[in-house]
Design a protein around this nucleic acid. Structure first.
Lengths: 342, 342
DNA sequence: GTGAAAGCGCTAACAT
DNA sequence: ATGTTAGCGCTTTCAC
């Protein structure tokens, strides 16, 4: 029998024959407690399975152990990447005693409108933003108000007023290009996004660097299209029909690589045999099609983000802000389309 | 000047010249308040931008307005579907004044271990579970403890002790098969999962029903494989090499349909022209490849789930429990592979 | 190092 | 219909 009601701090205090305050200290400032008292109280805590009540703690301390994360407005390109990141972030946050609180917003302005509510009503400790872009008003807003936050994605085109974690797209595309060069390719094309997207420009720069380092010309080998498969496909057709067609095509995204793949297949050409193709993001589509791709270390990114958030939250010195950014190296996932598996 | 500190209920009460309790009633039980008082208090609330503090309210009421949702342990088949559902759920919950609290767990047992913490420490109001399966211990656990929850997915093989929302996979596959029949196909194959997965069995039954209703034999036209592309591909090869090959193939998933697609392409056959193919889930892969698919109404499912949660939470009569399940009809997304676009 | 008192912002119970 | 009182469970003073 016995209506099993939740143990409170007070019940622990009574049973351990100390004051409530001592129990609180055992939890939050154990160094203040004499070893034997500490042990006795901890024993009781373990015995009764006591855990502090979050709302009570939040009410008092104004800290919720909640990380607010925006759920992106759906099928953006790379939604799939963000979801894997979100999963890793949930795992990591939980490992550090935090939880992820999701919120939705149609665009940046709508998102900002939710911030105030999250901060004041929910006492969220920090935000983790994804999909940063040029002129991101969200980071401005948060930085101005000294709200702790970290972005997964660089502050494109702005000086960093906040901590960030990102994946080195230039290095990824350089490695992909480099691999093609090592395999003997001389004419390597790049299928990218139009100038002005931070992510796209960054990735293209890696391709250019690798070509330049190897003394290869990129003349006539770059195409920029918006990120839809059909456009990737027609750009691939154009490249393949040119006077001196490429033998390898590095793509800014798996979506565009899929366009190339589709065009090759339609021409009865085999990706990886006739023309090598490599995409970016290691999406599920890439893995099922045997499309080589640049993979982002999303678990590492999540670890870095949660660690950085904790660092920001525990820092009192303004001199330590913003924290040192983290730029992670992606790795190549070779598959049939890169030409390694025959 | 003016340290803009958050308005409290008390400050509203003072300014409106009523007691705190009246302000509380304006918020939570407006019918108890005289119209003119109501209006006056509401005016003050709007003026100062007052919003109740969640932690304080939670501490008092033991309700958090939080919906706990497990983040599935990553790349399961249909991860993509669950993510779209999660997005819709976040939007819907928010529209009803709730938030989604994410948590991670490696498997069912680990998940159950987190429940207690979520319930007792966080006072989550309810759970929304996804990826239900046969012998789901999670639903057992929650039902036994009378924890409010709803599943997106039927209680496969068990009597429903809880509310659920699901998509009618049988109807989806029946519609897909029906479409093939209407287009004149006589030999329609089904690529499914091995017996024993609730979802797979359900979808196959729709295929069988449609064939039977049209007087078509399914003899030698069914294959079951685990959900990987390569297996789908070899099963497709087997079907195509048989004495009397199918002219249309309905698949239990986009992944398997992709296997068929790959095999057809390798044989220089055109999906939708030489052999019709239709998948299930309307994944991003399907949309980019022009693969016809059965689409789940995920927004509707999210709406139904949040509505059902609210219903469960506001119900006091045990007679009304469990609530009436919701079974949604999927719809066909026709693309090149279904043979409609030539 | 430990204890006592006060109070975070809100709502339930009761009184009027 | 409105006000008064008490207290949710915790941590922050401040004594000792």
């Amino acid at each position: 029998m016995a209506a099993s009601s939740r143990p409170t701090l007070e019940s622990v205090a009574r049973q351990a024959e100390v004051s409530r305050q001592t129990v609180s200290n055992v939890l939050n400032a154990p160094h203040l407690v004499r070893p034997d008292t500490l042990e006795r109280v901890q024993a009781v805590i373990a015995e009764v399975g006591y855990r502090p009540h979050r709302a009570a703690r939040t009410l008092r301390t104004r800290r919720s152990n909640l990380l607010a994360v925006p759920m992106q407005p759906a099928p953006v390109a790379g939604a799939d990447v963000l979801d894997r990141f979100l999963h890793a972030l949930t795992v990591e946050a939980q490992a550090r005693g935090n939880q992820v609180l999701l919120f939705a917003a149609a665009d940046d302005d709508a998102e900002i409108a939710v911030y105030d509510e999250l901060i004041n009503d929910h006492d969220v400790d920090a935000f983790v933003l994804t999909a940063t872009h040029i002129d991101d008003r969200r980071t401005e807003w948060l930085a101005e108000r000294n709200t702790p936050f970290v972005t997964f994605g660089r502050p494109w085109g702005a000086t960093a007023r906040h901590g960030w974690v990102d994946v080195d797209g230039a290095a990824g595309c350089a490695a992909a290009t480099q691999l093609m060069i090592e395999r003997g390719h001389q004419r390597i094309a790049f299928l990218g996004w139009p100038d002005g997207s931070g992510v796209g420009d960054d990735r293209r720069s890696g391709y250019r660097q690798a070509c330049q380092a190897a003394g290869l010309s990129v003349e006539g080998l770059e195409r920029s299209v918006v990120g839809e498969v059909e456009f990737g496909r027609s750009a691939a057709a154009e490249l393949l029909d040119s006077a001196d067609p490429p033998t390898a095509i590095v793509c800014v995204s798996d979506t565009l690589a899929l366009g190339v793949w589709t065009e090759l297949t339609a021409r009865r050409m085999v990706p990886g045999q006739d023309v090598a193709v490599i995409g970016f993001d290691n999406s599920m589509t890439a893995s099922v099609l045997g499309l080589a791709s640049v993979a982002q270390p999303l678990e590492d990114a999540a670890v870095a983000c949660t660690a950085m958030v904790d660092a920001v939250l525990s820092t009192t010195e303004p001199a330590a802000y913003p924290p040192e950014p983290v730029l992670l190296k992606p790795h190549l996932v070779l598959r049939a389309s890169s030409g390694d598996l025959r």
